Amino acid sequence: MSKVAGTTALMLFLWSVFVHFGRLSSLGVNELLYFRVISPEEISYIFSAAPAKDFGGHFKSSYDEIFLVPADPADGCSDLSNKEIINGQVILVERGGCSFVQKAQRVQEAGGKAVLIADNAEDNDSQYLDMVTDGSTDKPSIPSLFLLGRDGMMIKRSLQRQALPWAVISIPVNVSALASFPLKQPPWTLW
């Protein structure tokens, strides 16, 4: 394939991503944050997540290799029992049981660098929710992101199947540099 054809194909792909997200949610492609699972290999894809609307911070640096650790308890609504491996990592929490703010606050108090809150609707592969404050005085400052339910379920299932305590990820990933590495999105998600 020629360089011009490759560039044209990439531009068409990016336009289709933009149109797809414009139809499925109120989020534009530039309002999503992307991360890449490095291991386990069976889920080594680029995933998208939606940042919280009015709480949480932004990534001040990127992490080429950081652990994505499932919270214990999974909903993150009480003290996290796996604090020893949470400190300095990105934490995967399930939606439900308490507010998004409470989940982010618990992860922040346990030393997590960021939180990915996966929808508890495991068949959700396209609808992002707006995570907003709950009216409390808690204002967690770590990046807080909403992850589609199917993506969260597939990550957790892979870790359970292989008896792994975490996945290794890169976050955030600059999708404008897609040409510099192979694009590999989850096969279950329509981009």
Score class of each variant (00 low, 15 high):
80 L>C: 01
172 P>M: 04
121 A>Q: 11
138 D>I: 12
165 P>R: 07
81 S>F: 09
180 S>F: 01
99 S>V: 06
18 F>T: 15
179 A>Y: 08
104 A>K: 04
13 F>N: 02
77 C>K: 08
86 I>T: 02
56 G>I: 03
112 G>F: 03
169 I>Q: 01
184 K>I: 13
177 A>G: 00
181 F>T: 07
101 V>Y: 05
126 S>M: 02
60 K>R: 09
131 M>S: 08
41 E>Y: 14
119 D>A: 08
167 A>T: 09
80 L>S: 03
30 N>Q: 11
123 D>P: 09
135 G>C: 13
61 S>T: 07
113 K>P: 03
108 Q>E: 15
28 G>M: 02
31 E>G: 14
151 D>L: 03
8 T>Y: 10
56 G>Q: 05
117 I>Y: 05
24 L>D: 02
14 L>D: 11
78 S>M: 12
77 C>T: 03
107 V>E: 01
39 S>D: 11
158 S>F: 09
93 V>N: 09
26 S>H: 12
95 R>L: 15
180 S>M: 04
104 A>S: 14
40 P>Y: 04
51 P>R: 00
187 P>Y: 12
176 S>E: 13
77 C>Q: 04
116 L>A: 08
77 C>E: 11
77 C>W: 06
164 L>E: 08
118 A>I: 05
139 K>F: 14
112 G>H: 00
143 P>A: 05
47 F>W: 05
176 S>P: 00
191 W>S: 13
101 V>E: 00
123 D>K: 15
160 Q>H: 11
95 R>N: 15
138 D>G: 11
145 L>G: 09
59 F>W: 00
22 G>C: 06
140 P>S: 12
118 A>L: 10
89 Q>M: 02
25 S>E: 07
55 F>Y: 03
102 Q>F: 09
107 V>I: 03
122 E>T: 13
48 S>T: 10
169 I>H: 03
82 N>Q: 06
69 V>P: 01
54 D>A: 07
82 N>E: 08
8 T>K: 15
140 P>N: 12
61 S>V: 10
7 T>E: 15
128 Y>M: 10
74 A>T: 00
158 S>I: 07
140 P>T: 11
169 I>E: 03
133 T>P: 09
103 K>P: 00
89 Q>L: 09
54 D>L: 06
126 S>R: 13
102 Q>G: 02
96 G>P: 13
168 V>T: 09
111 G>W: 12
164 L>D: 02
186 P>W: 06
89 Q>H: 04
120 N>E: 11
19 V>S: 10
113 K>G: 02
167 A>E: 07
64 D>N: 05
177 A>R: 04
118 A>K: 06
34 Y>A: 13
47 F>L: 04
171 I>V: 14
27 L>A: 14
92 L>G: 01
147 L>I: 02
11 M>L: 15
65 E>C: 00
181 F>A: 04
115 V>Y: 05
53 K>F: 06
54 D>E: 05
71 A>R: 05
157 R>S: 13
191 W>I: 08
110 A>C: 05
50 A>S: 11
187 P>A: 12
